[in-house]
């Protein structure tokens, strides 16, 4: 019998990954119809054309995978931004990156470009996210304080929200104007395998860019001068994180709409488990983000509301009080 030792970092991340995988599987067991998931999976594996396997593969699988991937990307981006800006409130949602991504996707979609070229949708999202990140990181480079940076995020968020609303109102389709709800309060409902491709093909290289920035972020946590003397190029680090965030967040938001607060909460929950160094927080925050998103998406399908709540509503209900707590703690420190 070995004594109980705290988990190594590797083990912590592996455990979080396993919980995320478990929730992905659990997510596929939840739906609007009663379904024998194991029989449906067996049908699919043996190539039997059953309606149950169609539901499992065409509806529930994309939803579960998209939940995991979106949450992973948001958690990762949140951790990277908090590391780079050394700001505990930084995250794609609060800082307006998700909002700008939604605007980019909205312009592409309602202008009809995605009908011609499907990848215009994530491209629009990524362009929006990149534009907002460039603005934010430029402001941060000028030594803007924590609160000023958050206010810059508020400004980007409101502008992006207003322009999104404008773009939707300009559409001749009478349904478009009502769809602001989806873009501001995202959802994974009725996504398809095609959406998985649109979100994951660009997101995967984005995750790689963010995950491999760990050592540079660790050095940066000792101060810019130390990081530079250790041979890390901070300009390149910023560019790398802008690209990574744009790829990971922009493509996800383009498919799911904005899912707020996951990027804020995930790194803070990951730190007590994985340690405070940004390099350690990164992968853990990614998996915590996936766990949070999948959990919220499972919860909202178990609630008896009809139609189901938007995922963005549920994450905001959990995340907004968390933001208040953070603000109180920050005031205590100041």
């Amino acid at each position: 019998m070995s004594t109980l030792r705290p988990l190594t970092h590797r083990q912590t991340v592996a455990a979080l990954a396993m919980v995320a995988a478990l929730l992905t599987a659990l997510s596929m067991a939840v739906g609007e119809t009663r379904l024998d998931v194991f029989a449906a999976a067996a049908d699919f594996v043996h190539g039997r054309d059953s309606l149950a396997s169609l539901i499992l593969v065409e509806l529930r699988l994309p939803r579960a995978l998209l939940g995991a991937a979106t949450g992973f990307g948001l958690g990762l981006a949140g951790a990277a931004m908090q590391g780079l800006l050394r700001n505990p409130l930084a995250e794609p949602g609060v800082m307006g990156i998700s909002g700008a991504a939604a605007l980019g996707a909205v312009v592409m979609f309602y202008a009809g470009l995605t009908g011609v070229f499907a990848f215009a949708l994530p491209l629009g999202g990524m362009a929006g996210a990149a534009a907002a990140s460039v603005i934010l990181f430029a402001l941060a480079g000028r030594g803007l304080g924590t609160m000023a940076l958050v206010l810059a995020g508020v400004a980007i968020n409101s502008l992006a929200g207003a322009l999104t609303s404008l773009a939707l109102n300009l559409s001749p389709n009478p349904y478009a104007a009502l769809e602001i709800v989806f873009w501001l309060m995202g959802s994974l409902a009725d996504r398809s395998l095609a959406d998985i491709a649109l979100a994951l093909v660009p997101a995967a290289p984005g995750w790689w860019l963010l995950l491999t920035a760990g050592r540079a972020l660790d050095a940066l946590s000792l101060g810019e001068d130390v990081a530079q003397s250790l041979g890390f190029n901070l300009r390149w680090l910023r560019i790398r994180l802008i690209l990574g965030t744009a790829l990971a967040v922009g493509s996800a938001v383009a498919v799911t709409g904005m899912i707020g607060f996951v990027g804020l909460v995930a790194p803070h929950l990951a730190r007590p488990l994985a340690g405070r160094e940004p390099g350690r927080v990164l992968p853990a925050a990614g998996f915590v983000g996936a766990i949070l998103t999948l959990g919220a998406d499972i919860l909202l399908r178990l609630l008896p509301t009809q139609p189901e709540l938007n995922l963005g509503v549920v994450t905001a209900l959990v995340g907004a009080p968390f933001l208040f707590l953070l603000l109180r703690r920050l005031r205590g420190e100041a």
Binding site: G31, E32, T33, L35, L51, A52, L54, I55, E58, L59, F109, Y110, G112, T114, G115, S171, P172, N173, P174, Y175, A176, L178, E179, F182, D190
Partner: peptide
Amino acid sequence: LEAILIRPPDILIVETDNEGAPALA
């Protein structure tokens, strides 16, 4: 959608008019 897939109709009738300008709806 799940309810449709589990008990599909012989004929699915989808309206076409607004498809010139896209919307998620």
